[in-house]
Nucleic acid binder design. Structure first.
Lengths: 145, 145
DNA sequence: CCTTGACCTTCCAATCGTTGGAACCCTCAT
DNA sequence: ATGAGGGTTCCAACGATTGGAAGGTCAAGG
């Protein structure tokens, strides 16, 4: 099975499969005589594992850990659980940050009449919002999803 | 006021101030005789505006729009409101994605006994989760916060 | 006056995950 | 044999931010 078929079957783009291979997340694929990458059912299995972990928001580094534990038949389930728990904590922190932003903006949107007049509480708030210190905290915690 | 003081007073790092200037988000700063950037109270005002908008999760591109509207005394508040509303929509979509991830993981974490035994529902789920199609949708919607 | 340290300047690189494109090679069907 | 549609490698960009190197400037104190 070539990379295009593996991509379609796993939901990981061909570009990303090459990238994951290059960075060592997944092992180097077998090659055909003409140097095409060749994927087995077992390789597909791994690719699907990676995609599902990405769908759950795990970073590539975390997926590396999970793959290691997955392959290690003697792993302690406590290790996996801890990684998952830590990840949930991160997710929840991001959720809180986004909710805070949405709530603040929601208040401002509700206060803005939104017509052809120029005065606008949203801009006024951006201009001089007293809640500077808390916001710094949020900003510091903000990162990519 | 030099860039370090402006950074401390605005909450925007010196690095980012230079970057914002370079990319045209904010105008070029005045310079002293020795080519140090020189910031006025009005410049600080703009920097704080930018920081607050970033704290609310607006992208730099969106902040550019907001700055334009802020400076335009004849803007229609409806324009600002629409940008804010669109942004709330994006935030809510990200929140939903993250909540979905956290909920799924939460179920798995609860199901994992988390001791020294190797069997682990978390890894089993990553290995073969039937909910492939929905996940693709989530993945497609996922982006930076 | 000179040194020291803390600041400023520009430029270049890295992060993270992903996509796009160029230039080239391979395979299969017409 | 020719062309379409794969594959291959390599290089660059996205967005926002940080780090660092190499050099100029400022204020303090010896």
């Amino acid at each position: 099975m070539n990379i295009g078929q593996a991509a379609a079957a796993s939901g990981v783009s061909a570009k990303m499969i090459r990238y994951y291979e290059q960075t060592g997340l997944i092992p180097h694929a077998a090659r055909t005589a003409s140097r095409y990458r060749d994927y087995s059912e077992s390789d597909l299995h791994t690719l699907r594992f990676v995609r599902r972990a990405r769908d759950l928001g795990f970073s590539v580094a975390e997926i590396g850990e999970l793959l290691g534990l997955w392959r290690d038949q003697t792993r302690r389930s406590a290790e996996v659980k801890q990684i998952a728990r830590d990840h949930i904590t991160v997710l929840e922190s991001k959720i809180r940050d986004l909710q805070e932003m949405a709530a603040t903006l929601g208040v401002l949107v509700d206060a803005c009449h939104g017509d052809s007049r120029p005065d606008c509480p949203i801009l006024q708030s951006l201009e001089a919002d007293p809640a500077g210190d808390e916001q710094v905290t949020v900003r510091a915690r903000r990162g990519a999803v």
